[in-house]
């Protein structure tokens, strides 16, 4: 696969490591965002075809066969959707962090012991 997808997988692994090892809730949310970014890179790299260009008709591709010169537009469209959803989810998680901080005046995960066993 391309270098971009390998980079995306590395980002996903780094993000998961951050979510599992960090104790601060904000840092966990940052880990989630890193996973999100890595996933976007992987999806975009799936649609990429070597030697082709972005699916936008301009002077540069005028008269050429669009089916042989454009990359796949569907993964790009999916990533656009995923970025917006990721933004919404991140905002919602940050608001949960605000709520948790109000409840315990702390953002360290060790201070939330109610569901610990």
């Amino acid at each position: 696969m391309t270098v971009i997808s390998i980079l995306g997988f590395i980002l996903i692994i780094i993000g998961l490591w951050g979510m599992l090892t960090q104790k601060n809730i904000i840092k966990m949310i940052i880990g989630f965002s890193i996973i999100d970014t890595g996933l976007h890179l992987v999806i975009v790299s799936i649609g990429f075809i070597k030697g082709r260009t972005a699916p936008i008709i301009s002077k540069a591709v005028e008269g050429l066969d669009t089916g042989k010169n454009f990359i796949d537009p569907v993964p790009s469209a999916l990533v656009l959707t995923a970025i917006v959803i990721g933004l919404a989810i991140t905002a919602l998680m940050l608001v949960y962090a605000v709520k948790l901080f109000r409840f315990k005046r702390s953002l360290q995960i060790e201070d939330f012991e109610e569901l610990k066993w």
Binding site: I46, I49, I56, I57, F70, P73, V74, S76
Partner: peptide, 28 residues
């Protein structure tokens, strides 16, 4: 997984028929 060298059928249709059917320059 090998690198793709061709569009799949759905993408092929979007890319070739899109400009004619919808008249949009940005196919995404």
């Amino acid at each position: 997984v090998d690198e793709t060298s061709q569009l799949n059928r759905v993408a092929e249709k979007y890319v070739t028929a899109g400009p004619l059917e919808l008249g949009a320059a940005n196919l995404v």
